[in-house]
Design a binder for these strands. Structure first.
Length: 203
DNA sequence: CGAATGATCGGCT
DNA sequence: GCCGATCATTCGA
């Protein structure tokens, strides 16, 4: 039976473990009255305060990043390039501004709804491959930021379907689109499932 | 108050 | 494979 991830999963300090273990878990949304779910295939860890790529670098707290300082299990969603929504899983304890970006998922439930939201007619990898795309497919908006996924009646949550991704199938590499972060850009905090067609493009 | 800047995507060449 | 869209947020004046 699918089971929602509990506080003990999110509220650890080892963010790289959480990012790795999120692979194979199932992200679910119940928005606009429609249920959709998809298996997580690709993640990236952002670990403040030392990570220059994180919005909370140096523990810089603003109105936007405030959500990241909450306890693990909240959803941090923001707009990038004026168009794209990004879904992050807040982790660690309260005051630790750690977050994990979900970069790609594999559709499970509500594929027709995803196609409509993306204005597509055929199922192809770009339906949910890439952080902006998967948010659009699952109906996630910036106004959903701050949702507590630990609430049993929240509209966004993550389930464990008992799917294990073998360690040898998990590839770690540098994160995408953060060249400005200098030495942090090389840190191998991107995790994805080897050979999976839903992994987002660059590599 | 104005300007610069992205954790990107998709259409066009 | 490259280029332009597009806007919330942040920072400097």
């Amino acid at each position: 039976m699918p089971q929602r991830l509990r506080a003990s999963f999110y509220q650890r300090s080892e963010i790289e473990e959480i990012a790795r273990e999120l692979l194979g878990k199932v992200l679910c949304t119940h928005l606009d009255g429609v249920l959709t779910s998809a298996m997580i295939i690709e993640t990236e860890a952002y670990q403040a305060p030392d990570d220059k790529a994180s919005h909370a670098y140096g523990n810089k707290k603003t109105k936007r990043t405030e959500v990241m300082f909450r306890s693990g299990g909240h959803a941090y969603i923001y707009l990038c390039y004026g168009i794209h929504h990004m879904m992050n899983v807040v982790s660690g304890g309260k005051g630790e501004a750690h977050a994990i970006l979900i970069r790609a998922v594999q559709p499970v439930v509500g594929i027709q709804t995803m196609l409509q939201r993306r204005q597509m007619t055929r199922v192809e990898p770009r339906l949910t491959s890439g952080p902006g795309s998967l948010c659009q497919a699952m109906g996630i908006k910036t106004t959903d930021t701050g949702i507590n996924m630990l609430d049993s009646n929240s509209s966004i949550w993550i389930e464990d379907h008992g799917i294990e991704i073998a360690a040898k199938q998990i590839i770690a590499g540098p994160r995408i689109g953060i060249d400005y972060a200098e030495e942090c850009a090389a840190w191998p905090w991107r995790y994805f499932v080897d050979q999976n067609p839903w992994v987002s493009k660059p590599r």
